[in-house]
Every structure is written in structure tokens, then in C-alpha cells.
Design a protein around this nucleic acid. Structure first.
Lengths: 330, 330
DNA sequence: CTGAAAGCGCTTACAG
DNA sequence: CTGAAAGCGCTTACAG
């Protein structure tokens, strides 16, 4: 009971092997009668084409490698959700890898002969990607290139300058005059930080900055540092939601009431922000849309590999919840 | 500038095509000198074997399909982390799919000719898996078979009866006498619920039960229902951490202090439980170990497809944090 | 230990 | 519209 092949289908339908192949490819050169006969034979035998053989013959796998740094970050999953339907519709099948546990993932994908590569979020090191991008069409989603990245690829990302601007404007409008930022590292961290300082300065307010990896722990540590200053800030913008949650914990530790005495804003609007017990005001970075556009971009790139690399920014949106309020009086 | 193949490598090394193939397979039949020559040629040409061609010739893909229901549930990611290294060491490459967004994933994997399949966590419907498991070696990780599942496959899961027992014993030891459980659906939900009722009864205490899908929302709703009863419980065990977080939110809404007036225990000990702002007492379901053992089980199954199906239970562990305490006096 | 040949299951020109 | 042939890049007996 070996698997049926085009050979057995052809025999059963009383046609040649290549006719079966043409039917598989929906070729218009096949008469309706023969097509019906072949389809019937396929059905009777339970035939399913072997993608391995097809890939070898066609020289393309119809697979797209998706690399993200950390499956635990729900933001990545949002991007994935926007991306997946686009690939699916194009008959491409996503294959996922987490670079944190498999740093060589982009190269592995290249060896697998994927048709394209999408890198989601900021990777600690882009050099492997730079290498692979020379032979595989590649799109970066939800991250930005740094000045040192020798990489000429399409990029789709949230407009961080605007997102930070929205958050700062919200806080300024509430009346805050001492604002702090827990900044992340990497190109995105730098962009957000610069936008923060620019926006706060433009509002004539004071900007404090703490820096660290975008984790709960960083937020907690930064929170303690900021809140024990002689003149603590009345509002903090975190580099992401995890850091914001750390800030909230630090405030709780120190008996600082949020939002009465401290306003906190997160970034990315992940599911953690929406938890009732957290209710974090956060910048929705349009992850879903970033994913969708990255997919569209990759398809365009597959069509026209020679087109110049493109940078596309998606407008973010501020989601106001329970952690922001006017500063305490006096 | 076409990719190098064994053909070009052979030409460069001055040997035959098949000799190159033998080197690729680490065959002991190759003389050290020739092997060195071939390896040098590969290196000079930057040769990487084509896995597509290899799969077609060998009739195996060395890929393992991993199906999970929801990438957002961090518990799944923990299982993945335990599983991945085992597969990696065996030269198998994991391919991930989320059944929530791709219900046909198991069948897709079968069409791709994966060598094996691991189903992680509870799927809403196992019928597709049952179908695929007939032709593809399959292991279920972190879920249990229901009485109606016509499926004869290996299962590796946390020992839910024991885990629930640990939680209930903890609460009884603290002095609680009115315990509630927010039960989930499916085989796992049923197991946990039965274990809860058994353990509470054995302790001579009163057991209340609310049922619903394992979400924050269910926890929130159940919390309101339980806490507004004439005689509310003093402790609640949730079916998972998400539901427990919903419970915490309901308690906060109603001004019920946790843990002074209500103890809450979660299940799975996900990263949410460990957040400082949550500090949830939870049952560590040994997700990592479940993943590891599922991998080991799959390898054994690939070795011996005829072996009888096996059920393996992993001992859970209670992680006590800040949401449990003795009941209020009086 | 080595080399020539057939084959894995499909697709792709190419001649009818 | 159809059929016979070659080829995708490997592996696998098989004869030397």
C-alpha cells in the first residue's frame, strides 16, 4: 500500500504521466473530459502531490522562512497574525523559527531553499541576515536598520517617532512637566529615545532617561531609580509593555499610587496591557498591519527582485487605559 | 553563478559523484585522503546539500510537525522549549503551526511528508489528528485523550490529579474550608475538576465549581459569581493562569483583598504568574519536561512504529507566591 | 574502497 | 490539445 503517484493516477485515468502533471498545474491545455477523468482518478486513489518532488523539479519550495527573536513576546504573534493570511493566499507556507533558540535560523532557511525570508522584530545581531539576504528575498518587519547594518532590504515598521509623539502629547496635555523614558537598546530603542527627547523638549518640559534591555526587570530597576530621585518624574513612558509592568511593580513597592501620583505608558499594546489587573495605557504599534504589509512587500519583492529597497512606516495609535491621569497638584 | 551540486564538487575534487554522496553521509568506506579532498572542494565552492533532493531520494524529510492551538498561551512555548533540543540533537527540524489559525495543519504536515507529528496542548477537535496519526507517527504532549477520542497514540502530560491535589492540600493546610474551582472544558478540564472535588471532599471541606473556557474572561465572570454568593469561598483554584488573573481582577472590582480575604491559585505557572504585579501562586505543570519527554517518545516511536501506545505522566510542583494565605478569621 | 546506473516524484520544453 | 524524454540534486544497490 504505497502512496499513489502521478504514474498510478495516469494509469488509472488512462492518460500519460505529463497529462496528470498539467492537470495538477491547472493548465488550460487540458480538455474538460480528460481533466475530469484525472481528477476522478486522483480522488479514488486519494492522491496528494509530493511537495518535495515538486520543489526539486520547480526549483522553488513555496516556503517562506519567518524569523523572530522571542516567541514569548506577544507582539511578534500579532505581527504573525497579520502576515500569515497574506502568505497563505499566495500559496506560500510559513515556516517559523525563533532566533533566540536558533541563532542560525536564517542560514538554515537559506539551506532549505525557502523562497523568501521575513525577519520579525529586532534581532540581537543582523549579520547572519545580511549574509542570507544576498541570495534570498528578505523583508524586515517591525524593526529598523541601524546606521551600521550593511543591509539593503525592504523594511516595514511602526512609525516610532509618531507613536512616541502621541504618548508624550497625551502626557503633556494632562499637565505633566517632568517626564521620564525607560529606553530600550538597538535601533528601535534609539529612535524612540530620540523622539521622546525631541517631543518633551518641544513641549517645554523636562526629560529624564534610563536605559536597558526591554524587560520587566529593566522597568522595575528604572522605576526604583526614578522614583527615589529628589525630584521624581510624574509620568514615565516605557520602551515596551513588559518594562511598563516592571515600572508598575516598582511604584507599588514604593507605595507610589498609579495613576494618582505617577502616570505610566507602555508601548506595543500587547495582551498584557489589556489585562484588567494591569489596564495599561499603551501605544498600539499596529503589529497586525505591519505583518500584513510585510507580506505584501515580500510578494512584490518576489515578483521584482531588482526593485529598490523600500521603507514603509505604519501609523501607531494611543490606547488610553487606567494608568495615566493628571499629575498630582503642587 | 549557479549553486554548487555534488556534481561540481566531484569535478573539483577529481572524484565521482557518488563518492561525494558517501562523504556527505559520513560513510566509513571513504579513504581519509579522498574525504579530505572532497571536504576541501565543498569548502572552496561553498557547497550546501539540497535538502529537497535529499528528501526525495531518501523518502524522508527529517522534519517534524508541531501543532499547537494558540501561540499566545505561554505554556505552549515552554513545552516547545523542552522539545526543541531533543529534535535538534536527532537531526530533526521542527516546523510549527497554530491550529487556531490553521485547523488543517496536521493534514498539511502529512502532505509535506513530515517524519513525525507532535500535538501540543488541547485542540478543540482531534478528529483531523486521528486521521493523520494513521500514517504519521504522532505524540500528544500536555493533553489527554477523552473517552470519545478514537486515537491510539503516545501521550505525555502533566499529572493533573497530583497537581490539583498539591494545590488543594496547600489551601486546606492554610485552613480554608470553602474552596471553589473555575473549571475548564475538555478532557484536561474534566480531569482537574474531578481531582478537585475528590481532594476537597477528602479534606472534609466544601467544593464549589464554575465552568467555562480557560480565559481571563471566564475567570472574571466566575469570580464575580463566586464572590457575590451569600457564603463566598475563601479560596479559588483556577483552571489556568489566565483564568486566575481574571479572578484577581474580579476580586479587585469587588474590593475583596487578595490574599487577606481570598486566596487564588493558578495553573501552569506561566510567565504571567511570575510578574511582580501578579505574584500568583500556581501549579508548575512541568511544561519543559513534558516537551522533552514528548520528543524522546517521538524518537522511540520512529525507531519502533509497532510498539504499543504509551501514557507518561510528569509530576507537577506547587509554586507558592503572594496570592495565598490563611482564610480570614471568623 | 570506488564508479556507472537507476531511481525518488514531479515539471518542462519539444515534437507530434 | 497529447505523449515520450530529459532533468531537478541527491541516494542506493551493485558490479568491480
Amino acid at each position: 500500500m504505497t502512496r499513489p503517484t502521478i504514474r498510478s493516477v495516469a494509469a488509472r485515468a488512462g492518460v500519460s504521466k505529463s497529462l496528470v502533471s498539467l492537470v495538477l498545474q491547472d493548465s488550460p491545455k487540458v480538455s474538460p473530459e480528460r481533466r475530469a477523468a484525472v481528477l476522478a482518478a486522483m480522488d479514488e486513489l486519494g492522491y496528494r502531490p509530493d511537495p518535495t518532488a515538486r520543489s526539486l523539479a520547480q526549483g522553488r519550495t513555496r516556503a517562506v522562512g519567518l524569523v523572530l527573536d522571542d516567541l514569548r513576546n506577544p507582539w511578534f504573534v500579532d505581527v504573525l497574525e497579520g502576515l500569515r493570511p497574506v502568505l497563505h493566499e499566495a500559496g506560500l507556507r510559513p515556516v517559523l523559527a525563533e532566533s533566540r533558540s536558533e541563532p542560525e535560523a536564517p542560514r538554515t532557511f537559506a539551506d532549505l531553499r525557502v523562497d523568501g525570508l521575513v525577519v520579525i522584530g529586532t534581532l540581537p545581531d543582523l549579520s547572519v541576515v545580511a549574509d542570507v539576504a544576498r541570495s534570498v528575498p528578505t523583508v524586515l518587519a517591525g524593526t529598523r536598520l541601524g546606521p551600521d547594518d550593511a543591509l539593503d532590504v525592504d523594511v516595514v515598521a511602526g512609525d516610532d517617532a509618531r507613536g512616541v509623539g502621541l504618548a508624550v502629547e497625551h502626557l503633556l496635555a494632562l499637565g505633566h512637566r517632568r517626564l521620564a523614558h525607560v529606553a530600550g537598546t538597538g535601533p528601535v530603542g534609539r529612535l524612540r529615545r530620540e523622539a521622546f527627547e525631541r517631543a518633551v523638549r518641544a513641549g517645554g518640559a523636562t526629560a529624564l532617561v534610563e536605559v536597558g534591555p526591554m524587560t520587566e526587570d529593566t522597568g522595575h530597576r528604572a522605576g526604583r531609580a526614578l522614583l527615589t530621585r529628589p525630584e521624581p518624574p510624574t509620568a514615565v513612558l516605557a520602551s515596551n509593555d513588559a518594562a511598563a509592568v516592571g515600572l508598575l511593580a516598582a511604584a507599588a513597592d514604593l507605595g507610589v499610587d498609579v495613576p494618582a501620583r505617577l502616570s505610566v505608558v507602555g508601548y506595543d499594546d500587547t495582551s498584557i496591557a489589556a489585562l484588567r489587573a494591569v489596564a495599561l495605557t499603551s501605544v498600539d504599534n499596529a503589529a497586525h498591519e505591519v505583518g500584513r504589509l510585510a507580506g505584501v512587500r515580500l510578494l512584490a519583492r518576489l515578483e521584482d527582485p531588482a526593485a529598490p529597497a523600500d521603507l514603509q512606516l505604519v501609523a501607531p495609535r494611543l490606547v488610553v487605559r487606567g494608568t495615566t491621569a493628571p499629575p498630582p497638584r503642587g
